[in-house]
Design a protein around this nucleic acid. Structure first.
Lengths: 122, 122
DNA sequence: CAGTATCCTAGGAGATACTG
DNA sequence: CAGTATCTCCTAGGATACTG
């Protein structure tokens, strides 16, 4: 629940390519969803597993998800500033279909790869 | 099983926007998957429900899905030519997660829309 | 720390025209 | 009918630098 996010959270080479045909929103939303699964996280904390995504793009992603009601943004009046992002009930409900998609991908990734090789051979 | 595809198959205005945060592959793959659900279809038959997608883009989409092993392309030696696209077992298996995602979207679309309105109001 | 502000680029996607 | 072949456009996404 409160362990730090691992830097290699999305480092699996099998998933870094385009083998996974199911996407959640834009490029990063699905991964952010996964990052927030175990509780609220800070801006810079999210950057680590997300391959050091640039602040501009992470801000855009978080704003879009906030706008869609997937997460809330809480700025604490401290110095240095601390901002936390946390899934809403709606956002958490999206983990359901995402897990189904992930299970499907894990199960069929070998078949995907094999189909590509067969296609390449002609 | 053999009814023609309806032209307004994807005409629902609620789904034409960006409210649906789950995407299958590129812009058209998910819809093609749905179009082939009930059996093989011809190239020009697919164009109708797909908003008269340009042939170039439909070809690209079909080639990508064929490459990933989602469907097969069968050219019949006739005149005029007839080509049929049909889902493979792998392609059909992707309908599982897609239906889960569609169910989720249908259930939460009102909440999505409401979240947006609330965000817009500030 | 948690962001803005600029600038830039690759490629997904469409319009249009042509062909075996 | 079932596609190619070109051309063009848009924008998601990244690089870099700066700030309250």
């Amino acid at each position: 629940m409160r362990e730090p996010l691992r830097a290699d959270m999305f480092a699996d080479p099998d998933c870094s390519g385009r083998l996974q045909p199911i996407r959640f929103g834009d490029k990063w939303s699905g991964m952010v969803l996964r990052c927030l699964e175990d509780g609220p996280r800070r801006f810079s904390e999210l950057r680590v597993p997300l391959h050091w995504i640039t602040p501009k793009v992470l801000t855009e992603t978080l704003r879009a998800m906030e706008r869609n009601g997937f997460l809330t943004r809480t700025a604490h009046a401290e110095n240095p500033p601390r901002v936390e992002y946390e899934l809403t009930v709606l956002g958490r409900s999206a983990l359901g279909p995402m897990n189904v998609a992930c299970d499907w991908a894990r199960e069929h990734l070998p078949a995907l790869a094999e189909a590509r090789e067969a296609y390449e051979r002609g």
